[in-house]
Write a protein that binds this DNA or RNA. Structure first.
Lengths: 123, 123
DNA sequence: GCCGACAGTAACCATTGGTAACCAGTGACT
DNA sequence: AGTCACTGGTTACCAATGGTTACTGTCGGC
């Protein structure tokens, strides 16, 4: 599990948890998880829902998440093409921590923006 | 608080919560918060504790966090120079969500790495 | 025959993350 | 007096990443 045999410990620079932290800290990953929660979604709809994400970048994000077992990608042999993205159990287990983070963001946006204003006006 | 007058909503692409989400999703920010929890810490010690972070990048991270009101930076007129970084109340309030995320990472590293292995071996 | 929907890809540019080297100020050591 | 090291950075530079815009292929409908 952990290459050096120790328990996973995010405070250890050499622990692979750092890698995982990078993935779930990714700007778009959290949003993808949030939007996929209700059920499978197609590429274009997901893109529209998230907003402001370039197709290339969304593709990269989705591929990386698929690789890490957070979601599945299903291609239906139809015309027009149809590709569904759906959270795996692992992906769904990420919802709780992500909710904690987004809830914090929603609750404290004001404070952060205020602090930023004060800092910028002062110097 | 929210420029458009609506309630903060992370699913809205135009909501400033997205900005906040970017900051706390930052690779080093989460680690800085974790390591500053026990108390104030100096630059060099923090750098060593985190591991693998370049001074320039750590400086950028700390300045951004100071700007957003997550920590304070105190310069002591001593020799050799001494600069302390300390979490604010706002920064400390981030601990809970961050803990949720790091706990997830520690619990599921194995699954993620396994999925990645499978994906890479398959194609 | 042309248009549009879908799910991307290709080519390109800009921003960022990261590296290595260097700096100022002071005290201690020689 | 000269040199060393410690601290908390800065500067210049480079590579990787993120992002934008344009384009592709296939099919049904007009």
């Amino acid at each position: 599990m952990v290459t050096n045999g120790a328990a996973p410990d995010v405070t250890n620079p050499d622990c692979p948890t750092r890698v995982v932290l990078d993935r779930i800290g990714d700007r778009w990953t959290t949003l993808v998880v949030l939007f996929l929660e209700p059920g499978p979604m197609r590429f274009t709809k997901l893109r529209g829902a998230i907003g402001g994400v370039a197709p290339k970048v969304l593709t990269q994000t989705l591929r990386a998440m698929e690789r890490d077992g957070l979601l599945t990608r299903t291609v239906h042999a139809e015309v027009p093409p149809r590709v569904d993205y759906e959270l795996t159990d692992l992906g769904r287990s990420l919802l709780a921590p992500i909710r904690a983070v987004t809830a914090w963001a929603e609750r404290h946006v004001g404070e952060v923006l205020d602090a930023r204003d004060r800092y910028d006006r002062a110097g």
